[in-house]
Computed example of a mutant assay.
Amino acid sequence: MKLEKEKIFKTLNPNKVWIPVLLGVSIVAFLFYQDDSVTVENLSLIFEAEIIPVALAFLVLFARDVGYVYRIRMITGKKLTWKSSIYVIILWEFASAVTPSVVGGTAVAVFILMKEGLKLGKALAYTMITAIFDNLYFVVMAPIVYLIASGHIFPQNSMIETQLGRSLPTLFIISYSLIAVYTFVMAFAVLVNPRWFRWILLKITSIKFLRRWRQGAYEQGSEIMMASKELRGRDFMYWLKISLSTIFIWTARYAMLNCVIEAFSNQSFFEHIVIFARHVVIWITMLVSPTPGSSGTAEFIFTQFFQEDLGSVTFITNIFWRLMTYYPYLFLGALVLPRWIARVFKKKK
């Protein structure tokens, strides 16, 4: 993970917000065009949304963001102030929004933490452990919701299956497997035996046609060892706080969609379970998206999952969902970035 300033600022570029915005708008326009159920009358339903569920959606989203700020402060052992923690979360979310989901904003997060006063080893450790715990939530929660809502998660017919020749369950299994393998490998490397992990990387890259990546493998292994060293000796309460805050953060994030859908259509308790389960599955599928912040991909997949059950309100809930969970962080990050740059580089003078 080379923390080259030019590359980082190339990612943290406010002008990049227009790429995912254009992708998202293009897909929304396509969905609007090809969906005969979307009419002016249906769009007017946005003004008939129930106030309490909408208010709950904003409250849950705010609680999630507070949870994010709390968790990063706890992960760093309160080395970050509350103000620094807020900056870190906003810019981390922004980096994730302007980079492909499959890549993520990890390198940028390390850079941000270092500029907030943390040394490289600690910044690497805290970024890696955050990513591991986030992925563990998906890995553990997905089988649970899959069993509870079994038979009700995946739609019978979807454009994805028609166009790609792959069913949604197949795409989900592929995504889940990749995330699970990556998560357990990283957890083992950081928390159990980083030295053995580096040795394996070097052995693999000693193969003739893989030698070009040997230097990168050595650097990656060394960074894992550095991060692991920083996390040794943490007590039970440290891990408990991270675990509970991670559960809270992601449960709140998924529950927000339940609130949005309830604002436009009354749902039973079991139907809310299914909505939550589908949101988990959608998010796991989005994690391997090649587009910035899953822009376009998210809107398209949402329609495939909910069109059959939500019908005429699918389009509205889709837009509401993305407007609340994605675009605010895109524009907020672009607004905060210049102030943060002036702040952290002024410290160095």
Rank of each mutant, 00 (worst) to 15 (best):
P14T: 10
I204D: 14
K83C: 07
A255D: 05
I207M: 04
G104M: 00
E41P: 12
L210H: 15
V190Q: 00
F302L: 12
Q304K: 02
P292V: 05
V28W: 01
L323Y: 15
F302Q: 11
V108D: 04
V60D: 01
M159Q: 10
S294Y: 10
F209V: 14
A187L: 12
R212P: 05
Y218K: 08
F47G: 09
S96V: 11
T325A: 01
G77A: 11
S243I: 13
D36G: 09
G221Q: 03
R253D: 00
W196H: 12
F302T: 10
K348T: 13
F197Y: 09
V103W: 04
L287E: 09
T205D: 06
F138S: 07
I204M: 13
K115L: 04
I52N: 00
I148D: 02
I132H: 01
N15Y: 07
L61G: 11
A149R: 03
S243M: 10
E4T: 09
F47K: 08
V260P: 04
I316S: 05
A49F: 03
Q163Y: 15
F30D: 02
K122P: 00
V185Q: 03
L171Y: 02
G121V: 08
E230G: 00
A277N: 14
L168Q: 05
Q34H: 11
G216H: 15
I273N: 07
L257T: 02
M114A: 09
L43S: 02
Y238T: 07
A55L: 15
L61H: 14
I27Q: 00
L332Y: 14
F30S: 03
V185S: 13
T130K: 01
K83Q: 10
S44L: 07
A109L: 14
I284S: 05
T76E: 00
M286I: 12
I174T: 11
K349S: 14
T297G: 02
N42G: 13
L12W: 01
I319A: 06
V181Q: 11
A49W: 00
F315N: 07
S37N: 12
W92G: 09
G117F: 11
T39I: 10
A298Q: 06
L231F: 15
L178D: 05
M286H: 12
E271S: 01
A55I: 15
A57I: 04
L323I: 10
Y329T: 01
D309K: 14
L171K: 02
F248P: 06
R339P: 08
N135T: 15
H152S: 07
W321E: 01
I90Q: 00
N266L: 03
L147C: 11
A217F: 15
R71F: 01
F306M: 09
A277L: 10
R71K: 14
A63Y: 03
F209D: 04
A123W: 08
L147K: 03
L136F: 10
S37T: 09
S177P: 07
Q307D: 05
V260F: 14
L61M: 08
G24Q: 05
P169H: 04
T303F: 06
D36N: 13
I247C: 02
F30K: 00
Q220A: 08
R198T: 03
A142C: 05
E299P: 09
V108T: 10
L23S: 13
T183M: 06
K115Q: 08
A63S: 15
Y326A: 01
F47L: 08
V145P: 04
F58E: 01
D235L: 14
S175R: 07
G24W: 03
T76P: 06
L113K: 04
V21T: 11
